[in-house]
Computed example of a mutant assay.
Amino acid sequence: MGYALLAGWLPGERMVKAHIVEPVVALRERAEAIGATASVDISGIPPGFDPAAIVFAVKPQHLCDLLPAYLRFAQDGAFFLSVAAGIEIAAMADVVGTDVPIVRCMPNMAAAVGAGMLVCCANVMTSKQQRHLAERLLSPAGKVVFIDDEALMHTVTAVSGSGPAYVFHFLECLERAGTAGGLPDALARDLVLQTIYGAGLLARKSSDDPAVLRRQVTSPNGTTAAALAVLMGEGGLDTLLARTVEAARVRSVELGAH
């Protein structure tokens, strides 16, 4: 996630000046190759470097241990932007204090190709300008929205955070169904990938509700109607996805309590 953001900031006119703290040599060199300065630890940050934001793209279990070292930048006006999954704003504030502006972001896997869904919430110390900067920093990775109720992050995680895995599994299943019907493997995959891509793009660009689009492609007594009778029947996709999202939401709550 960190590199996906960095790659969106630095090409062209360079939206930001970035310094990366990265202990892994190969990752540090990769950041430098696209125009960032980098160091193995915080002591290598250049003198006079005055960041407006400190972005923490680290494993969740390491986040709270790292925060105190960067507190001096917050005291100089920077805000903290975390993309570490599952770590609540209160947990960060317990470490650095409630007067530090903090933005928490839940991205998803598609951020790697600039098509992610990034949902953010901020504490009361975060200014309107800082929220706007957070949106600018995150937007190269996809669509950015802010929510006010952090408790909704559990459902966000269940829908968009885990959601790509649901789609990938649907792709697997539809591809297997195609090969079971006699399609060559390569053709089945191509049909499935382009169909899902096209349907998603159409839904994104259309002003119509997905239910309207579904009805538009469904002729009475036709092939699509026969298929939807299965998907929309008792115990079908609607019920299954409701159970799926709830299972992920409950697990997110459980993990957040530890």
Rank of each mutant, 00 (worst) to 15 (best):
G2Q: 04
G8M: 08
W9E: 07
P11W: 01
P11V: 03
R14N: 02
V16Y: 15
K17I: 06
K17L: 08
A18N: 05
H19N: 13
V24T: 12
A26C: 02
A36Q: 07
G44D: 09
F49K: 12
A52T: 04
I54C: 12
P68I: 10
R72V: 00
R72N: 00
F73N: 00
F79D: 02
F80A: 11
F80L: 04
S82I: 10
I87E: 07
A90G: 06
A93P: 00
D94Q: 10
V95E: 01
V96W: 03
D99I: 01
R104C: 11
C105I: 12
P107M: 15
N108Y: 02
V113P: 14
V113F: 06
A115D: 09
G116D: 10
L118C: 14
C120W: 00
N123R: 15
V124D: 13
T126D: 04
T126P: 00
S127Q: 14
Q130Y: 09
H132W: 10
P140I: 07
P140A: 06
K143N: 15
I147G: 00
D149F: 05
M153A: 07
H154P: 05
T157Y: 03
S162W: 09
S162E: 05
A165P: 04
A165Y: 06
L171F: 08
L174D: 10
L183M: 14
L183I: 06
D185F: 08
L191T: 11
V192K: 13
I196R: 09
I196D: 07
I196Q: 12
A203T: 11
S206I: 03
S207Q: 14
D209P: 02
D209I: 03
P210C: 15
V212T: 12
R214V: 10
S219P: 04
S219N: 13
P220M: 03
A225C: 12
L240A: 14
A247R: 12
E254Y: 14
L255A: 09
A257V: 08
A257H: 09
